[in-house]
Amino acid sequence: MAACGRSRRRADAMEVLYFAWVRQKVGLGSERVSPPPAVTDIGGLMDWLSSRSAGHAEAFAHGKQIRAAVNQEFCTRDHPVRAGDEVAFFPPVTGG
């Protein structure tokens, strides 16, 4: 039914979350994105996200200072990403 369309998740979408100064530079706390098939890992996703806005570009220009998590586990740049993942980008943690 057409009424279902609005709430249905796009099959190729992933949720991307931003924290601390990454969130401030991007200007969003989270967004749902559908990267092209060529984007297969965290590094590729960072490159692709950079092109979405001036804020994204500014945040990811500091790429070496950005850490990532996939499905709430810390990961490195070569970690795969796929549809349905929860991906997060943030600075090195400073709790305690």
Partner: peptide, 10 residues
């Protein structure tokens, strides 16, 4: 905790 839990201080 200081290096492994996702907290950020401003």
């Amino acid at each position: 905790l200081k290096t492994g839990a996702p907290f950020w201080k401003r």
